[in-house]
Design a protein around this nucleic acid. Structure first.
Lengths: 254, 254
DNA sequence: ATGCGGCCTGCCGCCGCGTGAGGGTCAAGC
DNA sequence: GCTTGACCCTCACGCGGCGGCAGGCCGCAT
């Protein structure tokens, strides 16, 4: 059984990959994907290594990277899997961008729906976070302190929009990581529990007194959703967490 | 107190909006943003209406629409807020695309991490959902039924990696946007509910049978966490959602 | 009158290909 | 050997959305 090296023409590879011949010509011309060799008749010949390289190019292309950036990424170390894992962060950042665009649109819709004066310069504030802050300061100064509440209520609404949710979930992840560390290492979880209680209050948009926090502990211990989530973090963690939450709540004033 | 009409030169507007003079020239040349008028000296003069039109252009531009598509969107009815609300769906679709790109990358990382044979044609399967399904069917047929479990386990592992959470939350947002649309427009939410159930199952790492889904509806309706989140999406949505979830679960087999 | 910052139009260039012109190569069939 | 059809090649123009610059006019201050 001999090992055959499979070779492909440019048309073969175009069909395999879903690209056009023209694109593969272009990628050769710019040095992004040279063929294995060029035959005596001038035809391009591609082999497995080129196919794998093209697969990676397609990943970066799908994410919208310019070809120069793709070439850089391909040169970013010998381990393909490591390169692709590194690239994953780019995609996550892209997801955040889309979320930010949604937030911008929501702020503009808010401008349209209110009866407040929107100055010419403030039309473009939603596209720039620093100017948005200045705009909000001006709103409060102009219309009075109850405007701060309206902005906060609006922001609470926006905080549950995609970009805000990602930040909140990221925060929850760090709190849970600290709780798991306390559980596995036998440390005092009080500080992490306080942060968790604050997180819950922010999520609710109101305070979370000790009785409510103890009630939440009951829910965590009793509901399959939460048990599944916490068991996935560490075995038996789903039993431990409600207990320390109740103990911690019992020690709080009020 | 006389009402003054504020007029801006092209340079004024470039500074206000963060664009370049060249860009505003271009937008005039292609008819996208004509000035209010051109003065006797040839200088462009912009007023409030142009400023508002440009704000809307920037929203569509930020979402990556070509200028021709932006012109179409601007011509899509006299009510600006309605146009922008319609556009929100485009952004939600963009979020879907990013999620799909993450899924493609995850599948390729999966190819790299296994010891299984990856044929030349299967290198490009992850970029095409129909071919990916055929590839997974082939893997199961070649390596046996435990391969199905390995695929599912690998996928579940990737989904709960820390940065996988952003994609999951982006996906949840699109599902919720569709549910809210169904709620406000009075459409049938069944398709969105099916996707939501699938999302929950993926989140749990196991199936979500109808009873469990109905139980989840109870949790959503009873717990302040979820009520707060859903009220922020649309008033009364937190009452409607558990109901349609329970109704939908009651209609499922099993 | 001069200088400076702003305005104007015109034009070339960039990036990543799509498209088509004109011509060579290869293999099968007659 | 010749013909035919599918494939290959290079070259070059074009597209969309501007960036950048040249050359020249405008308006205001000194």
């Amino acid at each position: 059984m001999s090992t055959r090296i499979t070779e492909y023409s440019v048309g073969d590879l175009a069909r395999l990959s879903g690209l056009t011949v023209r694109t593969l010509h272009h990628y050769h011309a710019v040095g992004l994907l040279p063929p294995a060799h060029v035959a005596a008749n001038g035809y391009r010949v591609y082999r497995r290594a080129e196919l794998e390289r093209l697969q990676e190019i397609l990943v970066y292309r799908q994410a919208g990277l310019p070809l120069a950036a793709i070439a850089e990424a391909l040169a970013g170390g010998p381990d393909r899997a490591a390169r692709l894992r590194r690239h994953r962060q780019t995609l996550v950042d892209r997801a955040r961008q889309v979320s930010a665009s949604l937030a911008t649109l929501d702020r503009i819709l808010e401008q349209l729906s209110g009866d407040r004066i929107v100055t010419d310069q403030d039309l473009y504030a939603p596209f720039d976070p620093a100017r948005q802050q200045a705009y909000e300061d001006w709103l409060i100064a102009t219309y009075g302190p109850e405007m701060a509440e309206a902005i906060a209520a609006s922001r609470a609404h926006l905080a549950t929009a995609p970009d805000g949710m990602a930040a909140r979930m990221a925060e929850l992840k760090t709190i849970e990581a600290d709780l798991v560390a306390a559980f596995t290492a036998g440390h005092d979880p009080a500080a992490a529990l306080a942060r968790h209680r604050d997180w819950v209050a922010a999520m609710w948009g109101r305070d979370c007194p000790p009785q409510a926090y103890a009630g939440l502990a009951d829910l965590y211990g009793a509901h399959a959703d939460f048990v599944a989530r916490y068991e996935a973090l560490a075995p038996k963690f789903s039993h431990w967490l409600p207990q320390v939450m109740r103990d911690w709540a019992a020690r709080q004033p009020g």
